[in-house]
């Protein structure tokens, strides 16, 4: 049954030539272009539906009450599905963070660029190596060689300003966007 020969005069694009052909080419082009625009714009809703939804975005900032956190203590809060470390630093810890020679750091950053108030260090608790959560929040946790955090996955050590000091991680713990809304409250995000 299957016929594969073209009927005479219907050989695809090789028809009658001249003016008719150019008008047809233009039509093909215009139709193809408009169709392509249609398909391309129809694709966008599918892609965009996978971006954060309105409820996710609306919860993107949260308020944290710092009043109960005593000096030397730390709390972990969840923000955008990630742990955020809030540490109420002691004078000794602040001192340690400030006196480091920046030239010795893998990812140099002065302590005052990483805090808004010296006693409060707020960082995203995710190791910049491959995404584990470093230890050091609980009093019983190991805090590494620099009194900050120690990542058990591949042995990264962070100091009391959350800066990488030793181990495979390439960068300091990330400081999230935040602002103090009062002396004892911050808004993350």
């Amino acid at each position: 049954m299957a016929q594969t020969t073209h009927p005479p005069g219907t050989g695809g694009h090789a028809a009658s030539g001249g003016e008719g052909a150019s008008r047809r080419d233009f039509l093909y082009l215009a139709t193809g272009a408009v169709g392509a625009i249609g398909v391309a714009s129809a694709v966008w809703p599918f892609i965009d539906s996978m971006n954060p939804a309105a409820d996710t975005l609306a919860l993107a900032s949260i308020d944290v009450d710092l009043a109960p956190v005593q000096e030397g203590q730390a709390i972990t809060v969840t923000w955008r599905g990630k742990p955020v470390f809030v540490r109420h630093r002691t004078a000794k810890e602040i001192e340690e963070a400030r006196t480091v020679n920046l030239g010795d750091l893998r990812d140099p950053a002065a302590d005052d660029t990483r805090v808004k108030k010296p006693e409060w260090l707020i960082v995203v608790g995710i190791c910049t190596h491959l995404g584990c959560v470093p230890l050091g929040q609980k009093p019983t946790d190991p805090r590494g060689d620099y009194d900050g955090w120690f990542c058990p996955c591949h042995g990264s050590h962070y100091d009391t300003a959350g800066r990488i000091r030793k181990g495979p991680a390439p960068a300091n713990l990330v400081v999230p966007q935040y602002a103090f809304t009062s002396d004892t409250a911050v808004r993350l995000g």
């Binding site: 005069g9 219907t10 028809a15 009658s16 008719g20 008008r23 047809r24 039509l27 093909y28 215009a30 139709t31 408009v34 169709g35």
Partner: peptide
């Protein structure tokens, strides 16, 4: 556009 294209094409 599709209709015009179709007409043109089938007219051959």
């Amino acid at each position: 556009l599709m209709y015009a294209t179709k007409r043109k094409l089938w007219s051959t």
